[in-house]
């Protein structure tokens, strides 16, 4: 499996789309978490996230601010990365090329999942790094004291962020295997994350109790609960404490494993066209 992991890592690192997605992730995180709210505070304007106060942008809120985007927007980008990593083999017809070299399907698939897990960690670390620099700059600019979260809180936050990001990457992977393509899994994944989850939360759940209960078992709301439990601002889309942080972490981990397992099972059983 280490051979497959090394090969997959080379493919991911050398692929321009990977870097583009990382850049988009960091720019979105920077703009919506720090730039717009800070501009609003500095200019005294009103609007979305304008009720964030200066203390919410300072370094001691780094963990929550860094996790806020992962339940929906940044999670969507990681999902796309998962689709590209696995679905690209279908799009280019390269499964046969790779498998003809001798590795088993599960060996290649495991290499892909490990690479995605590593990429998810890199994304989360990069988001934390951008957040750290941004919050420190804001603190200095506003002559505020710089207090960083404890090492334990940072590690917990990074771990939770990695859990959420990896789960979304696995969802992308399983969609790619199930649909044996790139475009359709990306489309369906984004529709689910950006539209269906929000519609369920904003429209269906308040009307129907069973939908509200169902929400507590879905990946998005659990990711949102996990982020909320670790201090993500409540006005961030997808962030809401519908279940406790511990339960949310378990459910997210369960989905991660389930997505990975279902993808592996499908890949193992189906013909490679």
């Amino acid at each position: 499996m280490s051979r497959s992991f090394r090969a997959e890592t080379v493919k991911l690192v050398r692929r321009p789309a990977s870097w583009l997605l990382l850049a988009i992730t960091l720019v979105l995180s920077l703009i919506f978490t720090y730039v717009f709210p800070y501009a609003s505070i500095a200019g005294g304007t009103t609007g979305p996230n304008a009720d964030r106060t200066l203390p919410m942008l300072l370094p001691d809120r780094l963990v929550g601010n860094s996790l806020g985007g992962l339940p929906v927007f940044l999670g969507s980008i990681v999902l796309i990365l998962g689709v590209l990593t696995v679905g690209g083999e279908y799009g280019w017809g390269t499964w046969k090329t790779v498998l003809s070299q001798g590795p088993s399907r599960l060996e290649v698939y495991a290499g892909k999942l490990l690479t995605l897990a590593a990429a998810a960690l890199v994304v989360v670390l990069a988001v934390f790094a951008v957040g750290a620099v941004s919050s420190a700059l804001i603190a200095v600019a506003e002559s505020q004291p710089v207090h960083w979260p404890s090492a334990g809180d940072l590690l917990t936050g990074i771990g939770a962020g990695w859990l959420m990001a990896t789960m979304w990457a696995m969802l992308g992977a399983v969609l790619a295997v199930a649909l044996r393509a790139v475009a359709l899994p990306v489309g369906l994944g984004l529709v689910w994350m950006l539209a269906v989850q929000n519609l369920l939360a904003a429209i269906a759940a308040p009307l129907l109790d069973w939908v509200a209960q169902l929400q507590k078992g879905l990946p998005g709301p659990n990711a949102g609960s996990l982020a909320a439990a670790l201090g993500a601002p409540g006005d961030t889309p997808g962030v809401a404490a519908s279940v406790g942080g511990g339960q949310a972490a378990l459910v997210v981990a369960g989905y991660l494993i389930a997505f990975a397992a279902v993808g592996g099972l499908l890949l193992q059983r189906r013909d490679i066209g």
């Binding site: 051979r3 090969a7 080379v10 493919k11 690209g88 046969k96 090329t97 790779v98 070299q101 001798g102």
Partner: peptide, 20 residues
């Protein structure tokens, strides 16, 4: 069928890793 963003040599290097 190969990876379009890699060179021919890099494609073979990737496959060589799979092949050991």
């Amino acid at each position: 069928a190969f990876y379009p963003y890699l060179s021919g040599r890099d494609n073979l290097r990737v496959l060589a890793r799979y092949a050991g």
